[in-house]
Design a protein around this nucleic acid. Structure first.
Length: 425
RNA sequence: GGCGCCUUGGCCGAGUGGCUAGGCAGCGGCCUGCAAAGCCGUCCACGCCGGUUCGACUCCGGCAGGCGCCUCCA
């Protein structure tokens, strides 16, 4: 399998099977209910893990939770820990709603502070960081490869928050001394404070996956500065860090990136309630993971129609033909091309290759599309009554009963010698 | 100002130097008491302008439009 790597700007092959594929996907800062855009890296990470396992890799996924941060302090003055705990639970509940299972580890910053502190200490010892006024900053000028991942030229990077403590305006915080109004803190050699945003990922990824690992994922908007800084911190210590940088495209809503700061958000919770897990997953599947994808009524309705196509196909008679898995596998092995894989699933649906279809859908946790539902007794009774009316050529009564069944949420489909009852969507 | 990405038919979306993507929607038909499901057929393409080539949607250049990042952001 190969994946596009932001660092080398090329498709990079994964190590030979069977080998470990260790993945770290950046998770959310928990200060509000997560929106659908936040779900994209989660879904992609879980699918990637499923596919790697399906094809014989030992895949491991770490997905962190940033539970101490300026935004959390701002959102809940005096009660930041409570908000973080509540929002963490929301995130766990919301992502569980996709039915994709859980990442192998979901570390929280607040549970990894000692490891982060040692990481910073080592950077200070080696001259890559300096403490000043209770803070610790990374010395960007000392790391010659700075800017390589994002293509940013250090001399062109704008400085937005002047900070007289820094040696160089481009230096970024590894440790932030406690300020007025911040209600959580941890001890450190530089005084009480808390980790900066970027260091947590370097520390947590390496703690759980080792100094180098295969894939680091996250949204395209994290390339700079977040991932550039992570890379600088880890490489400064001589660690290999990520082999492949996998950045997913942004989710667009009303023509722009869905983001809390723009206010054009729909939460995962709301989206799942409105569209359901299967439609939402098929929506994500319909776009390539690196490209932007538009969340709109039209694209979601198309995803819902796909779901229905697959459900109907899975109710038909299986052709028994099990040949052709390679088309699906090669699509996914080639930069995880889910739109191409989806086309193969549709071809299998048309050809009634139901075994393959089920197996393919299972990779994406969409096997529930094949679930059949038993109509309740009162609906079954109406269907029986209609069958009798129809046999007696009392079509007026038969149509009335079918309407009644429909009103109760079931669709009656006549078949040779009988009928079937299907839940209406 | 700097860095980068994208542009395929009504919509989503794959792909290739000459040969069918696939889906949704539409249209015609078969089947059905009527439907639904299914099946068959079918309309609609490669942003614009140049160049390379026997031939480009596919390669090169320019232009236009859209999007992302530049220390809050999945």
């Amino acid at each position: 399998m190969r994946l596009f790597d932001t660092y080398s700007k090329s498709l990079v092959d994964l190590p030979a099977k069977p080998g470990p594929v260790r993945m770290y996907f950046c998770g959310p800062t928990v200060y509000a209910r997560a929106h659908v855009g936040n779900a994209r890296p989660f879904v992609i990470g879980m699918w990637l893990r499923a596919w790697l396992r399906e094809t014989g890799y030992q895949a491991l996924l770490v997905h962190n939770i940033t539970d101490v941060n300026d935004k959390i302090y701002d959102a809940a003055p005096g009660a930041s820990a409570e908000l973080a705990a509540r929002a963490t639970q929301w995130y766990l509940d919301d992502t569980a709603g996709f039915g994709l299972g859980m990442p192998d580890h979901m570390p929280k910053v607040t549970e990894m502070v000692p490891e982060i502190v040692s990481f910073i200490e080592e950077l200070v010892e080696k001259g890559y960081a300096y403490p000043v006024g209770g803070d610790v900053y990374f010395r960007v000028a000392k790391f010659s490869e700075y800017g390589r991942l994002s293509g940013q030229r250090p001399d062109q990077v704008e400085e937005q928050e002047p900070n007289a403590l820094k040696e160089d305006p481009r230096d970024f915080a590894l440790w932030k001394g406690t300020k007025l109004g911040e209600d959580t803190s941890w001890p450190s050699p530089w005084g009480d404070g808390r980790p900066g945003w970027h260091i947590e990922c370097s520390a947590m990824a390496e703690e759980l996956l080792g100094e180098s690992f295969e894939i680091h994922g996250g949204g395209l908007d994290l390339v700079f500065p977040h991932h550039e800084n992570e890379l600088a911190q880890s490489r400064a210590l001589g660690h290999g860090f990520a082999g492949i940088w996998a950045h997913n495209g942004m989710l667009r809503f009303t023509g722009e990136k869905m983001s809390k700061s723009l206010g054009n958000v729909l939460t995962i919770h709301e989206a799942l309630e409105t569209w359901g897990q299967e439609t939402l997953l098929l929506f994500f599947l319909s776009g390539h993971w690196r490209k932007p994808i538009d969340f709109s009524t039209e694209t979601l309705e198309q995803a819902a129609a796909r779901a229905e196509t697959f459900r109907n196909a899975l109710r038909l008679e299986d052709s028994g033909d099990e040949t052709g898995w390679e088309a699906f596998a090669s699509a996914l092995d080639d930069d995880f091309d889910t739109p191409r894989a989806l086309a193969v699933l549709h071809e299998w649906a048309s050809a009634r290759k139901l075994g393959l279809l089920r197996r393919g859908l299972t990779v994406f946790s969409l096997n529930s599309l094949g679930d059949s539902a038993e109509a309740p007794a009162e609906i079954a009774a109406l269907a029986e009554a209609r069958l009798a009316a129809r046999a007696a050529k009392d079509f007026g009564e038969a149509d009335r009963l079918r309407d009644e069944i429909a009103a109760a949420g079931w669709e009656l489909r006549d078949e040779a010698g009988g009928y079937s009852l299907v839940p209406k969507r």
